[in-house]
Amino acid sequence: MSLELGARQAAEAIAARAQGRARFVVAIAGPPGSGKSTLAEAIGARLGANACVVPMDGFHLDNALLDAQGWRPRKGAPHTFDLAGLRDLIVRLGNPRAPVYYPVFDRAADLSRAAAGCVMPEQKIVLLEGNYLLLDQPGWRDLKQMVDMSVFLRVDMVTLQQRLMARWEGFGLGPAQAEAKTAGNDLPNAQLVVTASQKADLELVDGILAR
């Protein structure tokens, strides 16, 4: 119920700011397990056909590249994404005169599929969602200035841990493996997002707009 309320509140704020704009790009950020993908979809549903959701997960580096660098255990950390590619996409999203294609991450295959998603010119509002869109680190911090509005979803760490554990178990891992994955990678990433993200235009706490 609270996420529904937060989605409605955020959608109203976004729609008001997007008035008169040919293209309006919103960054929706939050730690892994916070529900930002669900929030983005809920906001998009409320905004209607002129809005679309674009996940940044399509910019995961391929597993072969991660293995070559020894980065596979930290997949999902900032350095395991194609930041330059993401920046280029944001620039292209600002141009509503032509379709913009973007990569989509296939979780079942654990790889990104090139040009699997498309933003059409008539889709005025683009909801770009991902963990690190507001990260205050070199390169990443510039993204906030490239979008028109930002939203941050904040959830307490205990809830995040429970959700992340459940996610891994849903992928078929046993409790011990799920705990190792969560503690070794997901929680450090979540802590980074929580402690090192820039202030957003809107912040939702446990799914409700903070005043």
Rank of each mutant, 00 (worst) to 15 (best):
I43V: 15
L86R: 13
P31K: 00
L86P: 15
F24W: 00
A116Q: 11
L127K: 05
D110A: 06
V25M: 01
G58K: 08
P96Q: 03
E41S: 15
F105P: 03
K124E: 11
A108V: 15
P121E: 10
S112C: 13
D62V: 00
D136Q: 14
R87D: 09
L65I: 07
L89S: 08
L86E: 11
D67G: 01
V100I: 09
P55R: 01
L47V: 10
C52W: 00
Q69G: 11
F24Y: 02
I43T: 08
L61W: 03
G94D: 01
L134E: 11
L47K: 05
A109G: 07
V104A: 05
E129K: 12
G94C: 09
G48W: 12
A64H: 04
N131R: 08
N131K: 09
L65F: 01
A64Q: 09
F59N: 01
F24V: 00
A40K: 05
L83G: 09
P121Q: 09
P99A: 05
A42M: 15
A108Q: 14
F59H: 02
S34Y: 04
A109M: 13
A42T: 06
K124D: 06
A51W: 02
G44T: 11
D136G: 12
A29C: 13
K36Y: 03
P32N: 04
R72E: 10
G117L: 07
A40E: 02
V100E: 06
V25L: 05
P32G: 09
V53R: 03
E122V: 06
A64N: 11
N63H: 01
G33V: 05
D82L: 09
P73S: 12
